[in-house]
Design a protein around this nucleic acid. Sequence first.
RNA 1: GUCCCUGUAGCUCAGCAGGAUAGAGCAACGGACUUCUAAUCCGUAGGUCGGGGGUUCGAAUCCCUCCGGGGACGCCA
Length: 559
Amino acid sequence: MNLVKQIQDELKSRVEKACEQAREQGRLPYTELPSFVVEVPREKAHGDFAVNVAMLLARQARMAPARIAELIAGYLPCGDQLVKRVEIAGGGFINFFLEDDWLYLVPQAVWDAGDKWGTAPARGKRVQVEFVSANPTGDLHMGNARGGAIGDSLANILAAAGYEVQREYYVNDAGNQMELFAASLEARYLQEWGLAAEVPEGGYAGQDVLETVRRFIAAHGDRLLAESPATRRQRLASYALAEKLEYIRATLEEFGIRYDRWFSEQSLYDSGKVDEVVALLKQRGALYQRDGAWWFRAEGLGQEKDEVVIRSNGIPTYFAADIAYHVDKFERGFDLVIDVWGADHHGHVARMKAAMAVLGIDPERLQVILMQLVRLYRGGEIVRMSKRTGTLVTLNELIEEVGKDAARFSFVMRSPDSHLDFDLELAKQQSMENPVFYAQYAHARVCSIMAQARMAGVRLQPPDEVDVRQLSEPAEKELLRKIADYPNEVVQAAESMSPHRISRYVLDIAGMFHSYYNHYRVLQAEPAVRAARLLLVETFRRTLKHALGLLGVSAPEKM
RNA sequence: GUCCCUGUAGCUCAGCAGGAUAGAGCAACGGACUUCUAAUCCGUAGGUCGGGGGUUCGAAUCCCUCCGGGGACGCCA
């Protein structure tokens, strides 16, 4: 049930009919009705909904927008149950002022929807969201944290908007980095037995690798000394990989994230999919040979540079595997595939889309959200993050220091496009820097009212037992209005792939509630009003809780 | 040099499939707790939307250009 959308559709069709009538009677000449919007004006004085069709018709009709608006308004029905009156203003806007009736349907709509409030009916579209996908060779850093918060919230929002959603983590368990990782492990292993060995240049020299090796030794001793280097590396790598993955899985779960699938890069090699896709690219003439390597022809498809797919040593690059991976995603039947990447991968986007196009997949079906990088501060001083030299602040520490709710909210509050400066000191010292508490507090306040009501023997009555029209204060109507907007907000956040829209909404509606709370008493009101207010406050609470849930933030009953 | 992001109140940011008088939080100042949680509320102050062109009924929003900030340009991933 989406009341706002129903009304917008109704108004739109009324305007369309009015235009047609005016045209038929020869008073409004136009050949094609431009696509116009029924929007909510920023100013309340401009009514509940505004339509801009008159301005858009001005050129075709060769009339002043204000005159067109007057003309159209003359054909609009009003004074009925929905529309109280219509005004022309601002040089051609048609402003609709509605009767309040529809607002009083809101509590019932929320009740009827139950758990489904805020969600849209299934649209029969499958979406995959792949995010974080950090190399399983180290810790999770702030960039991964941001990606996790954005990706997971987006997945929640898409699901609420009616998509069938799958969350996936791409495990880079193959390729160069993995080999370096294995070589680093081996070096540490040999060193532990007093043998001469060195962590290769650009390898993993961090403490965590050493600790992993020590745990391996505790479990398996010196058995690998007798093995061939290749076997030794393979054993160490698979041990470390399993350990790292479990660590990553557990950390992300603490961050409120659960994946539906962990997809192994290595499996693409094992199944021959990488070779297959390379062969297909060759067959399509998308590759050419130069200096002994095979290059993907990306020039001309944007200004990106060409990219190596097969090295001159015959080993495919990660790009080859990544193409195979994306082909595999589409073969699994997703209508839309969303990748959440760090901005440092931006050059990869056009190439990947180009590769999809060559392989006959509409590149529009692949959407990449590029997040700008997180800059970490501690008390005003910048902290550089690096995976190789040992991460400075891990996701674990972040959760520990500022908490899951505050961390997730902070990341999802800002657009992925924004360069995020995250100050740890600020985040934990000044709780007011975390607006998440503001929203959670609103929830706790409602819960407190409900608890008081129960103690006083006052029951929360369902909408059909309540005279909702007792909610006559402007603040109450505005709150109802905001609640009614919720399903639309979810759909818009999904369609624009902007989780931060939901955090905006959360803060807006929480603010409206706090203000209402300070101006009106719920329990001290006379019984009929009290019943209506209890109901209002409960519909608000359900909406807020759902919205927070989309962001992976809890809605505490007490604070 | 090429490409991506960005420039809006003192600070951090919304708004940008063009819409009417540009918003919020923090910081500042002044008020509101014997009353459902003051982690709250109310008020005041704060702006050449980086500069300049263009597109049109109308631009913070779209295009061009210049300037400032962040990032990417590897037979790494």
